[in-house]
């Protein structure tokens, strides 16, 4: 039980590694972006894990209930920001991928490099 308290962090580490692997090892540009999204989501999980308090509830203050524990609002605010940053990066990346496809006819990294070297 004591160890299960760290389970979220382990999942964070594993998902983080999976995402990073996809970003580095995959040659397909869209796959790289998917990896990047996974990689960023892992960080969200880490932050949100911090905010949890045992016996707490979402930080919406209910009047008339004394001694209620609330989870920490700050990491939630940070991650709201980070989620929107994530989707912005993804959209920008995809726009570039679409243009790469139009300019090179492929979205595989090795083929793009080849076509520039032969050109």
């Amino acid at each position: 039980m004591e160890l299960l308290g760290y389970f979220n962090y382990w999942v964070f580490a594993i998902v983080f590694a999976i995402g990073l692997y996809a970003v580095i090892a995959k040659l397909n540009l869209i796959k790289k972006l998917l990896g990047l999204a996974i990689f960023q989501s892992a960080v969200f999980l880490m932050y949100i894990t911090m905010d949890k308090v045992e016996g707490g509830t979402a930080p919406i203050i209910q009047k008339g209930i004394e001694g209620q524990l609330y989870s920490n609002p700050l990491p939630q605010v940070l991650i709201l920001t980070a989620i929107v940053v994530g989707v912005s990066m993804t959209a920008m990346g995809l726009a570039i991928v679409v243009r790469i496809k139009e300019a090179y006819g492929t979205i595989e990294e090795d083929e793009i490099l080849d076509s520039d070297h032969t050109a």
């Binding site: 989501s41 979402a58 959209a91």
Partner: peptide, 26 residues
């Protein structure tokens, strides 16, 4: 994990909009 606001955002933006943009690019 008691983060209702973030859950709502992730569901709307992560699962919704991001997927649509990805499909548009695909």
């Amino acid at each position: 994990l008691d983060a209702a606001d973030v859950a709502l955002t992730e569901a709307a933006i992560g699962a919704g909009i991001t997927t649509v943009i990805f499909l548009g690019a695909l």
